[in-house]
Measured scan of single mutants.
Amino acid sequence: MDLSALRVEEVQNVINAMQKILECPICLELIKEPVSTKCDHIFCKFCMLKLLNQKKGPSQCPLCKNDITKRSLQESTRFSQLVEELLKIICAFQLDTGLEYANSYNFAKKENNSPEHLKDEVSIIQSMGYRNRAKRLLQSEPENPSLQETSLSVQLSNLGTVRTLRTKQRIQPQKTSVYIELGSDSSEDTVNKATYCSVGDQELLQITPQGTRDEISLDSAKKAACEFSETDVTNTEHHQPSNNDLNTTEKRAAERHPEKYQGSSVSNLHVEPCGTNTHASSLQHENSSLLLTKDRMNVEKAEFCNKSKQPGLARSQHNRWAGSKETCNDRRTPSTEKKVDLNADPLCERKEWNKQKLPCSENPRDTEDVPWITLNSSIQKVNEWFSRSDELLGSDDSHDGESESNAKVADVLDVLNEVDEYSGSSEKIDLLASDPHEALICKSERVHSKSVESNIEDKIFGKTYRKKASLPNLSHVTENLIIGAFVTEPQIIQERPLTNKLKRKRRPTSGL
């Protein structure tokens, strides 16, 4: 017993010596996670971090007073192994002897410093981030199933929210409404489509400006004509009531908005009720001829604005009016007729031209339509002016008669200019590109209106002035400009410049 007691005391002394060697000089306990400095002193990692955080910048070693920084600290694995072995020896000594260790306080702390507990403390002390800490805590505590279930439920809930957000973003663009038309193969669909197009076009005519009305009406008319041609002859009974509906809707729209509806009346003529396609083609032919005449008058307007600064050229074209007008009339009417003589009366030419125009518009179905009313009214106005011209010709002399006839021709041009508003800008460009020769010939008609105004002003003063002067240069210039014009009389060319000069002198006297 005595020997055993001596041996136990010796073992205890050895353990105490080893414990003092492996103590931390700051906390005076076994080193936890030993860290060595540049001066080869060993301290606990937790104690050194606490010391360095007390001051900004480098701190001093507690043993040798040298500078220490966080970067200079290094882990010493050898001392950590020695500490672990010492703890194992102490545990074995207690089991063999059955005696508690003399320094129970220190031993209890040593026992608490088992490797499992050290790992837990290291995970908390090290600044490795929240995710690494959570992982280490889960690994160190596998015995708690409640914690695992809560963490898994949190992760699953987070994943569910992310997935639901993604699915919502994908589903939202798919919620856009999609309209699908289910059509049938019955023959009544074509008639319904035609009526739908006509009503939609009328609404567009009321909303859209004048520049786009003609294009819309032309497209709708083409669509309706194609649909009529596709149907068989057996379905004509269905077409006639639908066309009557079209007429009623167009008349109502014309009564409500007459000014807006006139812009599309000329282009919509071939959508009118037709028994066969031949009647629609004839109407299209007549409309094309009318559009040609209207576009020519538009060309004359532009030329008149350009040549208004040259009064000499405008005056020299006075007698070329009849010849150029004959050529335009021959090209406007498709019928083959002989040219009228140069010395014939211009009023007779106008009456013949009106007689040619009237039969074209005397179809029984055309008179029933609303768009032809505008053309009939313009023709009636022309006839009224010609009836007035006959009365004026009986009273005035030959020279005054010529000037009045020219004035009436200008009035006719004004009437025809009203129809110019109905034609589109695209048709003007096509006419100029296809028929430049006709445009040059028809330019002379509009330029002549300037000389007509001068004659009217001469009649106000009650006299006409003449001068025997020749202007050969002007006649040559005008002959080169206009290709299809005829030779003019030299006496009238000489008379016109004198009248304008005298007018300039006598205007201030009349004002006084």
Rank of each mutant, 00 (worst) to 15 (best):
E75V: 07
L152E: 13
A5W: 09
I15M: 10
V162W: 03
L159G: 10
F93S: 00
S177T: 04
S153T: 08
S127M: 04
Q19R: 12
P58E: 15
V83Q: 12
E121K: 08
P173S: 03
P173A: 11
A221V: 00
N103Q: 02
T167I: 03
S4T: 06
D185R: 07
S140D: 10
Q19S: 13
R136M: 13
E181D: 15
N16K: 07
R133P: 07
D185F: 15
L49H: 15
K56V: 09
P145V: 11
F79G: 04
L138E: 13
Q174G: 09
S184G: 06
K56R: 12
L51Q: 10
N144I: 09
Q60A: 00
F107K: 14
N103E: 05
R170W: 10
L6Q: 12
K193M: 15
G129H: 03
A102S: 06
C44R: 00
S157D: 14
S186A: 08
E29V: 13
L51D: 01
V83M: 05
K20Y: 14
N103S: 04
S123T: 07
S72E: 14
A134K: 11
A102K: 07
E33N: 13
Y101H: 03
N16S: 13
C47R: 01
S127T: 02
D2V: 04
I31L: 11
N53P: 04
S153G: 11
E75C: 01
E29L: 13
K168F: 04
E121D: 10
S123N: 15
L182E: 12
T77V: 12
S80F: 12
L82E: 00
S80K: 12
Q139S: 03
A108L: 09
Q155R: 09
I15V: 05
T161K: 02
N66M: 06
D40P: 11
E33G: 02
I90W: 01
A102E: 13
L3G: 09
A134Y: 13
L137N: 04
K45A: 09
V83S: 01
A17M: 15
K50L: 14
I125S: 12
A92G: 04
I68D: 01
R166N: 14
T161S: 10
G183Q: 09
M18W: 01
V35E: 00
L51P: 01
T97A: 02
R163P: 03
Y130H: 08
L159V: 11
Q139C: 02
Q139G: 08
P173Q: 10
S146G: 09
Q54P: 14
F107R: 15
L165S: 09
D2F: 01
Y179H: 14
D2M: 03
L147Y: 04
R170L: 11
R78P: 13
E116N: 01
H41E: 01
Q81G: 08
N66D: 11
S157A: 08
L95I: 15
L152F: 14
N144L: 11
Q81L: 12
E116V: 06
I31A: 06
K56W: 10
V11D: 00
E75D: 15
Q174E: 05
D185H: 00
E181A: 03
K88M: 15
S127C: 15
R133C: 09
L6N: 04
K175L: 10
D67T: 00
L49F: 09
E33S: 13
G129N: 06
Q148C: 12
N53V: 12
S151V: 05
I15G: 00
S80P: 03
K65M: 14
L22H: 00
Q139E: 14
D189P: 04
Q54V: 10
L3T: 04
Q54H: 01
S80R: 14
M18L: 11
I89Y: 01
P145Q: 04
L137S: 12
Q60S: 14
K110Q: 15
D67P: 14
S153V: 09
D120F: 03
C44W: 01
L30V: 05
N53A: 12
L99A: 08
R170T: 09
N132V: 02
L49A: 01
L147I: 12
A134E: 07
I26C: 10
L49R: 11
T37R: 01
S151E: 10
D40G: 11
P25Q: 10
N66F: 03
N103A: 10
N66G: 04
E84D: 01
E84V: 10
K38R: 15
N16M: 15
Y105F: 05
S114D: 14
V35S: 02
I124G: 05
S80Q: 13
Y130D: 08
